[in-house]
């Protein structure tokens, strides 16, 4: 067998960008406000091809929260797609533009540095959940495709509580951790 055909069980089970896109459609997402991270390129290519989605690229993650607040005020359904590093940069914007304005929005956050065995060497991972807890933001960990239903749970909770809810994408669409 050629090496590039060897696929681990973890990779077979990985959260696929197609599944993420299905979850977006199922939950009525109209706009994805995003800043790329190293693992979202496949998702980007899929999103770009969908006529029901508008992609709004920002260049600093804090701007994603105020953008999403405007989209939600206009009656549409934004999704924020960023990495945990950018999430931490966004603290005041998240506070003022989403928590302070009762904006129901799901944040899909690439969980850079997360490891299944719990020993991480990346402070981006060290502080991610602590950061969310400091703001009282509920979050759901999505490790692989079998967890994808948690994305819909997050949408339901955001709508019910009129607050941001995070989905931590722990395997960043590839199954390597």
């Amino acid at each position: 067998m050629r090496e590039d055909h060897i696929v681990s069980d973890a990779q077979k089970a990985a959260l696929s960008p197609e599944v993420v896109l299905q979850e977006m459609k199922k939950n009525g997402v109209t706009h994805v406000v995003w800043l790329p991270d190293s693992e979202t390129n496949w998702l980007y290519l899929l999103m770009k091809a969908e006529p029901w989605l508008t992609l709004v690229g920002v260049n600093r993650e804090g701007l994603a929260f105020s953008t999403a607040a405007g989209i939600a005020a206009g009656g549409k359904t934004p999704l924020i797609l960023i990495q945990n590093t950018g999430l931490m940069e966004s603290g005041d914007s998240m506070r003022g533009w989403t928590l302070g304005m009762n904006v129901p929005v799901v944040l899909m956050v690439g969980y850079r540095g997360w490891t299944r065995h719990g020993v991480n060497t990346d402070t981006a991972a060290t502080y991610t959940e602590r950061f969310l807890n400091a703001f009282g933001i509920q979050y759901y960990l999505v490790e692989d495709g079998a967890d994808a239903g948690r994305i819909s749970i997050a949408f339901g909770e955001a709508k019910k509580t009129r607050r941001p809810v995070a989905v931590l994408v722990a395997d960043e669409y590839h199954g390597f951790n």
């Binding site: 406000v33 953008t67 989209i71 005020a73 206009g74 009656g75």
Partner: peptide, 20 residues
């Protein structure tokens, strides 16, 4: 809105324009 968080008015208003 006053000042929900400084630096965000343009992005908020752009989001509103895209939605409406």
């Amino acid at each position: 809105l006053g000042d929900p968080a400084m630096g965000g008015h343009a992005s908020f208003a752009m989001g509103l324009a895209l939605a409406l």
